[in-house]
Amino acid sequence: MSLCMLGPTRQCVLGRAASSNTVQFYLANTIMFRNTYDSDNTVFSPQGRLHQVEYALEAVKQGSAAVGLRSKTHAVLLALKRSTGELASYQQKMIRIDDHVGIAIAGLTSDARVLSNFMRQQAMSSRMVFNRPIPVNRLVSTIADKAQVNTQEYGRRPYGVGFLVIGQDHTGPHLYEFSPSGTSFEYYAISIGARSQSAKTYLEKHYEEFAESSLEDLIRHGLHALRETLQQDKELTINNTSIGILGPKGEHEKGVTSEGSFRILEGEPIDVYLKTMEPKVTAESASAPAPSSGDEDVQMAE
C-alpha cells in the first residue's frame, strides 16, 4: 500500500537503512512494493485495518457477479457463470444446501465447496436432531462465526469467498449476504462479485417494487441487475446465467414441490425469463458508471 500508511515505523526503518546501500535498496523495494502490515492477519495496521481481511474481500470481487432479491413470497438468486475458455464448461455458481436453503457464490470456488459442505452438515444435523429445517439466520451465523475465527487466529487465512444465501422458514423468505470478514446481513436485494456495484445501483433504484413482485417480475429485475455487471460486448445467455428460486411455483415452472423447495434453473428453462428482459438502456442514460471498466482486478479502496 502507499507509504503514508506505514506511519511511525517507516522513519525507524529508513534511519537504519541509510547505513548500507544494499540494505537501502532492499528496504526501498520493500517499502515500495510490500505492505508492512499485511503479512499476518492478527496484526492491525496503524489505521486500524486488517489487510489480509480486506484482500479476502478483494477475492470476492474477482468472482463473477451474483444478485439476490426477495419478495413477500419468493427469494431468488441470479448469477453469471464464467468459463475458462471456449472448450471449457461454465463454472458452477449455485449450490443447494437443503430444501429450504440455497446459495450463490463469488470468489474461490474451492473455499465455497468447503463452506457449503459445512452448511449442508449443519442443515442435516438440524433435521436429524430436531426434525426441523435449520433456521436460515442461524445457518448464516454459523458460517459467519467460522469466517470470523479465520480473521483473528494466528496461522490462518480468511475464506476467499462470499455468499448470497436465500432461505425460507416459518417467518417467510430471506436473503443474506455472507462475507469473509465474518459478517452476515439480511437484505431486500443485494449483489456481490465483479462489477456488482452496477447491479447494486440498479437494485437501489427499483427495490421498493420487489416486495409485491411476482416471481417472474422478481427474476426480470434480477436479470436486469445482473446484466449491468457484464462487460461491454457480452450479454446474458442460457449458458452463462443461473437462476436459483425459493417459493411457490411460477408461471413457467413444472414439477415444483408444494413447499416451493430450492431449485436451480440453468440452460433451456431460463430462456423464457431472458426473453422477458427489456432492451438495455444506452450508456448515456445509464445512472452510474461501473467503478472499474474493463479491468477485472478491482482496485482496493485506499
Partner: peptide, 19 residues
C-alpha cells in the same frame, strides 16, 4: 441465547429425545 423467534415445539422435542 438465540432470541430469533424460532422455538422448539413438541415435535422437535420428541425427535431430540429419541436421539
Amino acid at each position: 441465547t438465540a432470541q430469533d423467534g424460532h422455538q422448539l415445539g413438541p415435535k422437535q422435542i420428541h425427535k431430540y429425545l429419541s436421539q
